[in-house]
Design a protein around this nucleic acid. Sequence first.
DNA 1: CAACTTTTTGTATTTTATACTAAAAGGGAT
DNA 2: ATCCCTTTTAGTATAAAATACAAAAAGTTG
Lengths: 238, 238
Amino acid sequence: MKNNFDNANRRKKPQDNDRMMEVSIDCVVFGYGVQSLEVMLIEIGAEELQGSWALPGDLVYPQEDIDEAAHRVLRDLTGLAHIPLQQAHAFGEADRVPGRRVVTIGYYAIVNKLDVQPQPSHWANKAQWFSLDDIPELTFDHADIIRYALDKLRHRTQHSTRRRPLWEAVLPQFFTLSELQQFFEVVLNRSYDKGNFRKKLHEMPYLVETELFQEDVSHRPARLFTYDHTIHETHIAS
Amino acid sequence: MKNNFDNANRRKKPQDNDRMMEVSIDCVVFGYGVQSLEVMLIEIGAEELQGSWALPGDLVYPQEDIDEAAHRVLRDLTGLAHIPLQQAHAFGEADRVPGRRVVTIGYYAIVNKLDVQPQPSHWANKAQWFSLDDIPELTFDHADIIRYALDKLRHRTQHSTRRRPLWEAVLPQFFTLSELQQFFEVVLNRSYDKGNFRKKLHEMPYLVETELFQEDVSHRPARLFTYDHTIHETHIAS
DNA sequence: CAACTTTTTGTATTTTATACTAAAAGGGAT
DNA sequence: ATCCCTTTTAGTATAAAATACAAAAAGTTG
């Protein structure tokens, strides 16, 4: 086994470490709430960066996949588990971390703020939500990583109809069309016409109408819909 | 300087290398030609993988940005310089390279086959074009990397109107609308109606009409157009 | 039951995409 | 020169999609 060499570096043996570096993960978790989109940050509770705000991130272990690492890091620092993280971009400026060489891979996700309860642990002192227009000074290039992740989040919300929709992880199992519309309005920061938005949704066969209705609202109760992933997949295939 | 620590790993000193790994770049260079889209592969000329085909790729140096590394690697192995490489995706399965831990970052670009002359060097024995439907067995997960890059290439060709278009690097400075149409047809693997395609192009103010025409063609010569990046940028801003 | 809210359906208009036709402008052969 | 071939270029006619707007339906509240 130790005699297998990556073609990417054929003149070096694996045990030579003069070309090794650290690889980290940074997670951009967006918190969806009523009329607001926030991002989860942690306060560092150790060593010289103590008191600084940063994205939840840590080094990748040699024996784990980067996707696994993303989940572990987020869970260890904030307590958030089973979050559908997506890779956004790798950041690899040589001087992005002063005095060290760390290549980081940015991941992003969106969750419902009501569904999660941030629990800082390990070297995270605090873990809390920050409004997107009120982000504190962050370590290193973390502000860039957030910008990039927000771009991807918006792009994917608008375009990719061929993958499991992001709102599926945010909305309850049964939801109204207005709730879905709000998701788009909050994430994309624009507003839609109610009737027209509804028309477009009716062309999505994987958005299935149930016989359930809203309760305890002081107006006409809306019909509840649900997302059917099986229908979505067969729809993509055709 | 050595006392600065990444918040991503606050319990380790930089000199501990039990969490270090190798980071590599793999370049997917698409070659645009008449009615064809190919990809540049190299034949490995050293050690056990000798004779295998692979993407041009190598380890990142500790002191260079990953974007720089991508250009260096491609130049060293294939002789291709000043190629506008774009990051596609990071691949970090723990077992993607047997016996080692290498996280690789995939980059992609498209060039005109007539503009470049592949010159294998370093540990590349050969460097040549392969048709996309006739790719040989590749090392590691390089086939996945190509798939991913092709996806990005197509997506960007079709959608992103807000960035410098990919065809700018492929077409000559002055080109006909039919040449531009061919680019889209080859990359997206579909055909367009001539009149309608032309109509859409006329809505792009950064595509400017010149007073030049084709010469030495045995039919009505077409008007030549050119791309104006300044106009494009002001157009994006509005 | 009138006032109010939000859902839901519907129409009318504008914009965009697609299909198709035909004139214009060259070269080459007769 | 004239006819035939090609491709460019302009244009029209139709279909589909996006947008704007209006109004009925179905509940709650006072």
